[in-house]
Write a protein that binds this DNA or RNA. Structure first.
Lengths: 387, 387
DNA sequence: TAGTTAGTTAGAACAACTTACTAACTATTT
DNA sequence: AAATAGTTAGTAAGTTGTTCTAACTAACTA
């Protein structure tokens, strides 16, 4: 529970006014007052504050109404009052970018993860960020903070990567390390969670309250926004969709705790599709090739890929039955083949969930990670602007 | 977003002070001031308010510290400042009760659902409530409000039962109807959800932030508390665990949308256990008898019941993988046979979830529904006391 | 009687509110 | 074209309500 005092309430109302401006710009003081049911003097004072702090700009006058009267002064949100740095650390590449408060990317960089040894990754990241900052002629004061997405379980509160196998990080205090180089606040989060935050901020899940994001690639992971907030579970490991069991009989021959990854992953992830087809064909086949072979009518490929899709479909249906979301977003490596998935999955969902639900592919391309990381920052950071 | 003013903040702080008293009673004004970092005059004022409104009582003086000083005045929460009515409407019986603010039941009544036709149920409920109120010599002013648990999908905001097959209710505006008889506020909620609220308030899930409650009986339903709040989904139908698919191959021969109830329900609910064994034995067998037969070593019963338990286990494991809860509570008709479930289910959970989780039976007996409904009221009602 | 702690009183600070004002515009009348 | 009435935007002055600090009184121990 929270203790309130005058500062708390002023901040609260300032946020409310700013949100109103962001949602309805251009807007006048007078209209804000009507919309949020706050007295005109109070609105004027708060707007004055917001203008002085740079969040809001006056952009000339608007038109009078038909019945006459003084023309209103138009107020707009200033997305360039501050900039945010988004970082996406992945198993194959580390991408970083700088965006304004509307999520527009003004600078972007990436490098291959494997080229940098464990210790060098953050060093290289530091260089990339500095170069981008210079490029945009920004000072430390212009930067609000940084969000980082990491491919593993993350203790968000402490800023520690609990376990990220692909990075070989275990209980790695990444926030502490990164913070040493910068003066602004840094937030860290699992990359699937940053993805769903990005989708809710600017993507397919815009302004929805309950969405699920499923990433199918090397493994199968998921993140969810429930009641408008990221849900992390009691130990930061909610959404482990790869562990879903969709075939109880088959599951008896499989033990995730021993194999190291989940049942559904062992059937439906990109990696396992490749593996399974490879062993059937006795030659090395990737997931991408498996999809290609399937298109060509290869019987083995059809069997493997179709069963993968089917099981994924049941996994998603189960997810929907439990969560009743407004939208399911599919991302990750295989989201490129979304059209091939779609029908089968939608059919399973329609048949096996109490209340159906739309499934769409993820909105973003290369910049997904950066946008998500920025969304994370803006969601977590206590400020007058909040998404 | 919320607009703040001085009344809002005072109410907020009043809640905080009351919570502090409830959590640490008996406690002095001075200690509250230290605990919640609020000035002594402010605490005194708020406490004065709370005393006048009846929430708090002074109970004499405590002891001075070793270093001397004036003795503190002890403050305690007054659980009898108001009473709350809890109602549990079920397919077999309708139970109602009156509790104090600590959940102690002072009056209880129930009647068989089938004895009262559709229209008469609320009439009879009205009579029961009135008799209990008289019994306890309460006036309208002593009653804070009423919570109602219903066996079906409920639109909580509007107070409408969207669909409750066992009551033959469809879009039934129950809150409106009940409110006609009473002057206090009424809240309605699905019965599984009230159960989990009850467990979080006073039962196995006390003060936990993420818990799942699973009711296995006629069907299979579930409710969940996530981040300390009841999660209802985007259309009040989250937690439809009965629809989980735990055997993709078998599922192909089954269509929940046609059959009317979910896949897991068709295997693991009490009803279906009875049904399946009945058809195998060509005689009518109930779920209870099936369990009994299994204990006696009947082969058919063992097969049917064990597969039911197993599938339920996988369903729970899936639930846990997605939610990462602190606790899973099993309730409903079969929670009596919990010991027989426990081992199998725990083993499946240990093997098939990324991070294990404790499973316990539900705490309450007959009064479960009433306590849950009261918990619902106290959770939903905007007041200075909030659970 | 000195030292300590509990609780209250007095008044300052602050934020939102109401009321009444000025500023600036439209539309209509002269 | 000028004057005027009516309307809307925004500001100023003063009130209210809440928390805070500082200083007080009350009540206790040693």
């Amino acid at each position: 529970m929270q203790k309130g005092n005058s500062a708390y309430i002023k901040n609260m109302n300032k946020k409310l006014v700013l949100k109103c401006i962001r949602d309805h710009e251009p807007i006048s003081r007078s209209e804000i007052s009507k919309r949020i049911h706050m007295s005109k003097p109070s609105v004027s004072l708060l707007v004055e504050n917001l203008i002085q702090e740079g969040w809001v700009l006056e952009t000339g006058t608007g038109e009078s109404t038909i019945s006459g009267g003084r023309k209103p002064v138009q107020l707009v949100f200033n997305p360039k009052s501050f900039y945010v740095i988004g970082v996406d650390i992945g198993g194959t590449k580390v991408s970083s970018g700088i965006t304004c408060l509307n999520g527009h990317i003004y600078a972007y960089r990436e490098f291959a993860t494997k080229d940098y040894l464990e210790k060098d990754i953050l060093e290289r990241l530091y260089e990339d960020v500095n170069r981008m900052v210079e490029e945009l002629h920004l000072t430390d004061h212009d930067i609000m903070g940084m969000g980082i997405g990491v491919p593993g379980v993350t203790n968000v509160k402490e800023g520690i990567v609990v376990d990220a196998p692909s990075m070989k990080w275990r209980n790695f205090p990444i926030r502490e390390r990164v913070s040493q180089n910068f003066s602004f606040p840094v937030f860290v989060e699992n990359d699937v969670n940053t993805s769903v935050l990005g989708e809710q901020w600017l993507g397919a899940g815009k302004s929805l309250e309950n969405i699920i994001y499923i990433a199918v690639g090397t493994g199968i992971g998921s993140g969810m926004i429930l009641n408008g907030k990221l849900f992390r579970g009691s130990s930061y490991s909610a959404g482990e969709m790869g562990y879903l069991v969709t075939d109880a009989r088959k599951a008896k021959d499989y033990q995730p705790t021993i194999e190291g990854y989940g049942f559904l992953e062992s059937i439906a992830s990109g990696t396992s599709i490749g593996k399974r087809l490879s062993s059937l064909k006795s030659e090395h086949v990737t997931a991408k090739e498996a999809f290609e072979l399937r298109r060509q009518g290869d019987k083995d490929a059809i069997e493997i890929v179709d069963s993968a899709i089917e099981h994924l479909g049941f996994g998603i249906a189960n997810y929907i039955s439990l969560f009743d979301p407004e939208l399911v977003i599919i991302g990750g490596g295989v989201s490129g083949s979304f059209e091939e998935y779609e029908q089968t999955i939608s059919k399973i969902i329609d048949e096996f969930t109490p209340k159906s639900c739309q499934v769409v592919p993820s909105t973003f391309g290369r910049e997904a990670g950066v946008v998500g990381a920025v969304a994370l920052f803006l969601k977590e950071n206590e400020s007058v602007i909040q998404i």
